[in-house]
């Protein structure tokens, strides 16, 4: 089987070296670009399975590459962010980035995010039997049933739709806007406090210890992630 190619778009040479070492150790082929122009060229040439994209590049903002990529194809993109503003991360995710990693991050975190993005990109949109399992959480979509460790729990329709949206993207962060649009509709994407209240209620039902959630993680100022590992 051909190794999967990762296109690393990063202008810092030592950072590229770390990414190369981490990815090569796990059998990925690595193509490297240091500018937006080079990245566009290599993306056409190598057709990578995934792109790791730094946002601050010498010839422009990585966001512009992300938007152009999204016009053409669905190659997963993980943004490598040295920025602290949640707005930047939210903007990247809403513009089609599959995930983000805030520097600094370790090899295990990097590889886990790459695995998730590649898995989500290759999966069928819906399992044939209508069942979806994430860790201890099992959803029966046609029946609107959820079991945690085989125990049936009662969710409201909104909680079920929230959990389903998160489970379909297990391991990946979904922004407040994405979740609101998915569950309440595109006209209510500014009602984050309603979202928070329903997520808190969902967490109390699916977590053994809601104060130390095992599955449903909060990404402050950004959104939520359902852990899958």
């Amino acid at each position: 089987m051909m190794p999967e190619t990762v296109l690393v778009v990063e202008d810092e040479s030592r950072m590229r070296r770390f990414l190369w070492e981490a990815l090569s150790d796990r059998g990925y082929r690595v193509a490297e670009a240091t500018t937006l122009a080079q990245a566009e060229k290599l993306a056409e040439q190598h057709r990578p399975s995934i792109i790791l994209l730094d946002l601050m590049l010498p010839d422009g903002d990585g966001m512009s590459l992300l938007r152009r990529m999204r016009e053409r194809r669905r190659t997963p993109v993980i943004v490598l962010s040295g920025r602290d503003g949640e707005q930047d991360k939210v903007a990247a995710l809403d513009a089609g980035a599959n995930d983000y990693l805030t520097k600094p991050f370790g090899m295990q975190e990097l590889l886990a995010r790459v695995r998730v993005a590649l898995r989500l990109a290759s999966e069928q949109p819906e399992p044939e039997d209508g069942r979806l399992t994430v860790g201890a959480i099992a959803l029966d979509i046609p029946r609107h049933e959820v079991r945690i460790d085989n125990e049936l729990i009662h969710l409201t329709p909104i909680e079920f739709r929230l959990l389903l949206a998160l489970a379909r993207n297990a391991g990946r962060v979904l922004t407040h806007r994405q979740l609101l649009a998915e569950v309440w509709g595109p006209e209510r994407t500014n009602q984050t406090h309603h979202l928070r209240v329903h997520v808190a209620s969902l967490r109390r039902k699916i977590e053994r210890d809601p104060a130390r959630p095992r599955w449903l993680q909060t990404e402050a100022g950004i959104g939520y992630r359902l852990r899958d590992e």
Binding site: M15, F18, A22, G82, K103, P104
Partner: peptide, 11 residues
């Protein structure tokens, strides 16, 4: 630089 140190250490 922190990202490089953390990353390389993990490798």
């Amino acid at each position: 630089p922190l990202a490089v140190i953390v990353g390389m250490t993990s490798v």
